[in-house]
Design a protein around this nucleic acid. Structure first.
Lengths: 220, 220
DNA sequence: GTCTATAAAGAGATAGAC
DNA sequence: GTCTATCTCTTTATAGAC
């Protein structure tokens, strides 16, 4: 049974051997289903994705799916919380480093882009299929997202204070512009791109940091 | 019957009086249906949007819808071509002006953002629901989109030539970054925002132009 | 834990009256 | 041009055997 707080991330399981039936990449059945769901949800959208297609891609029959989940929406919820839990945990580590604000901001951008592009299916689903999640679970995912954005905004504010980012724009406007710049990448980046995810991240970070530079950065 | 090449844009009809049954905002029934479809497609996604809900929002019954369209997908196609035809026509006018490249680029950004935010439902559908359009019509919409992006890239290249945009980034990378910055706005901008659409456009243009500035801009 | 078979509901589209 | 009624197909989810 896939439970929100326990849902593992693709490729994260190392103890696959304890399972009776191993699959390609050492994923448990639940993990295989999650990966399949992410792929189909991303490609066709949540509503157009059928449980039958997810099952087939997972190597089982449609009915067997319901041994692992209670409803199709469970898969969406698991993917969203998984995506956000991971990226938020990493961002909080960066924030706790105590490095210069602008250095942390660069790291947050890199982390955001690299994490997002390392598992595009899952993060694309979180970013674009949230409207198909309903009730309390939708609110919960939005709260997780707000918490993550809070880390970005806090760092931006610190950059304004030390003069590396101009302070005549609001933190809110700056964070929206930054997330604009980063998030839309999910729609066009292909792993076989001439640029690696890290290169894309640094390219976008450079545009933002020059574009929103404060007095201090100009002296460098 | 809603035909792709004839589908009018919301609010554009001035000869509404020639219709027997006028509606709020002087929209013909076909226009009302298009607006309703745009709204429901955007809110729930194409697949989750039911023809019944579109009909109800249009003030008619589900079956009456099929006097105006042959299939649900017609609505998606009409919205996509409408969105792109309009923005492309305007962009081509800007390009024909003969002003300085960087001035034209600023105008293109303004046009892009203001047009997009003036009819968010329609443009959001074009930007995010394309995967639900199939066959030849999908290809056609992609071709329209490529043509529009071609105008942006051409202008960016001219900015590189005259030194207002740095030429050590590829035009392709720059255009992707610029469209990142502009397009994601559709997900968070609300008309009641403290910033007008034009202000958002100028804010984003400034970030991009400073962030990707070439040697000439630094002398200004 | 997976299977076949099927229930139950939803939704796109059509028929034909007015 | 809109309506009521209905067809038909798809899809989520369950029942119960193995």
């Amino acid at each position: 049974m896939i439970r929100p707080s326990e849902s593992p991330v693709l490729g994260s399981r190392v103890d696959g051997r304890s399972r009776r039936h191993r699959r390609v990449g050492h994923l448990s059945t639940s993990d295989t289903i999650l990966a399949a769901a992410a792929h189909v949800f991303r490609t066709k959208g949540y509503q157009a994705a059928t449980t039958e297609e997810i099952a087939n891609l997972s190597g089982i029959r449609k009915a067997s799916l319901y041994h692992h989940i209670k409803a199709k929406e469970d898969l969406l919820y698991a993917l969203c919380t998984d995506s956000l839990a991971r990226i938020t945990a990493a961002a909080e580590q960066v924030s706790a480093q105590g490095a210069e604000p602008v250095t942390r901001l660069r790291e947050l951008v890199r982390l955001h882009v690299v994490t997002m592009l390392a598992d595009q299916d899952k993060h694309a689903v979180m970013l674009t299929e949230l409207r198909s999640l309903h009730g309390a679970r939708r609110k919960q995912v939005i709260a997780l997202r707000d918490r993550y954005e809070g880390i970005i905004r806090q760092t931006l504010a610190e950059c304004q204070t030390d003069g590396t980012i101009r302070d005549d724009d609001t933190v809110k406007a700056l964070s929206l512009a930054l997330l604009n710049l980063l998030n839309w990448t999910i729609f066009w980046y292909k792993p076989r791109n001439e640029m690696s995810a890290a290169m894309v991240a640094d390219f976008l970070a450079r545009i933002f940091l020059f574009g929103a530079a404060g007095p201090k950065l100009h002296q460098v």
